[in-house]
Amino acid sequence: MNAFRLAGDITHLISILVLLLKIYATKSCSGISLKTQELYAVVFLARYLDLFTDFISVYNSVMKVVFILSSVAIVWCMRRHRAVKRSYDKELDTFRHYYLVGACFVFALLVHEKFTFQEVFWAFSIYLEAVAIIPQLVLLQRSGNVDNLTGQYVFFLGAYRALYILNWIYRYFTEAKFSRWIACISGLVQTALYADFFYYYFLSWKNNAKLNLPA
């Protein structure tokens, strides 16, 4: 474990806590894409299949459980909770995310480290995570203005993978046999997707203005 990875995991956890705060404090999920949340639940369920088979560390197992439970809880809340469900931007959140799931699964069948059930699902979860934010970014573009908590949520979510890239660079130079190409390249694509959001987020922060994304 290195500082970049720990910072990345904590940033990831913060993004989830910010989202939970927004939903529970405001009893609203306006501006949040249910499709992105569903994709994240699939990402964690597909990636942590080894939760019961490979024990890495208490930290690793606890964080896996937290990520799985929180992502499922957010989806459940946005689908079932009466008050929250009413505020869901159903007509704006129309990205066909099933195509993303299908494309990533096919790609994982083609490109993986080893052709085993667990490895294919791991690669699938890595590819899916890279594109999971797309429905959310599309929703933000359509709704134009971004409320603070949603903006912070997307910012931390993007920042965590950028920290992971630093972690991979660090591990590449410090560990003899470290090669995590699938995660590295996918992580670069993932962070690049946030690039324009980061740009407008920084501008709004610098000008102390409200975050408005160009339609």
């Binding site: 890495i56 990520f67 046999k177």
Partner: peptide, 10 residues
């Protein structure tokens, strides 16, 4: 086979 680098990352 290359000994499996355990998926120690989240």
């Amino acid at each position: 086979a290359k000994d499996e680098v355990a998926k120690d990352e989240l």
